[in-house]
Design a protein around this nucleic acid. Structure first.
Lengths: 142, 142
DNA sequence: CTTGATGCAAACTCTTTGCAGTACC
DNA sequence: GGTACTGCAAAGAGTTTGCATCAAG
């Protein structure tokens, strides 16, 4: 997974710096989708010298490369990042702890929707987020 | 519609100032979902003296009152506001001009989804945005 | 050696807050 | 008249940019 991404960057002429490598590694390792600064703090535990702007710059680079998605959650800590190697999918976002799981299954049939909405609007994509509580947070609230 | 909202505010003990009234009127009038500053600029065409912080303060108040929804769109101009008198619905967001239409019909069956995802995650809500091109922007791109 | 990447600092945008004066109820 | 609201200015958060230095290819 790390190798694939490195290879993709290399093939597009990007240099593979230690910072870049660590950012990708950290992103792979996260179980929730991190904000830019969460990612930076995580990396600083082993590499205290990295700067937040480098994290931002590389996240934007990875987004341009199609390796990372940026997700806008409602509320605070709204901008989070995820690896996007898996193609189209959706998320189960926990309202308790903020953890987000992926849902491979896509329940949205765009063709059906296009029929239902008529021809005025041409649908070319969608985003669906499911909100609720994960196992841990369900247990905590009881 | 304006009256209903004013009444609701009054019943909760809020004062009805000219600014407040104009903000609501402008919000009703918009055909796309405006950002806070778009809303402010629109209001300034007739009331140049209004300040952006008042717009923000009142939008937050209206959100607390349940009269307005805040929607996070991906990319720039991410935070937009809509009146939320119609209950649960989704949006057709134009990638060309940013205009957003409402879709009353909800194609997401949460019960089905709950079955499909199992019991680990308890679904209590969802958000769905459809992206594409409105009639105008479709025509322009040809 | 060349070009792109980094770190620092500062700029920028969006949003919130403190405060004194104002106006709605 | 009292309390909530306004405008101003300034503070904060999050993100981007300019620049000199550094290192990957």
């Amino acid at each position: 997974m790390l190798k694939d991404i490195i290879e993709k960057l290399r093939s597009k002429g990007c240099k593979i710096t230690p910072q870049r490598r660590i950012i990708i590694q950290s992103l792979i390792k996260f179980t929730k989708f991190p904000t830019a600064s969460e990612l930076c703090n995580d990396i600083r535990q082993t590499n205290p010298e990295i700067s937040l702007d480098t994290v931002y710059r590389n996240l934007n680079l990875l987004i341009d490369m199609g390796v990372v998605n940026q997700i806008n959650l409602p509320g605070k800590d709204a901008n989070v990042f995820e690896l996007s190697l898996e193609g189209h999918h959706h998320h189960l976002v926990c309202l308790g702890c903020g953890a987000a799981d992926c849902l491979d299954y896509c329940p949205v049939d765009e063709k059906e929707l296009q029929k239902a909405t008529g021809l005025k609007f041409e649908i070319i994509g969608h985003s669906l987020e499911l909100y609720g509580y994960c196992e841990k947070c369900k247990a905590l609230s009881k």
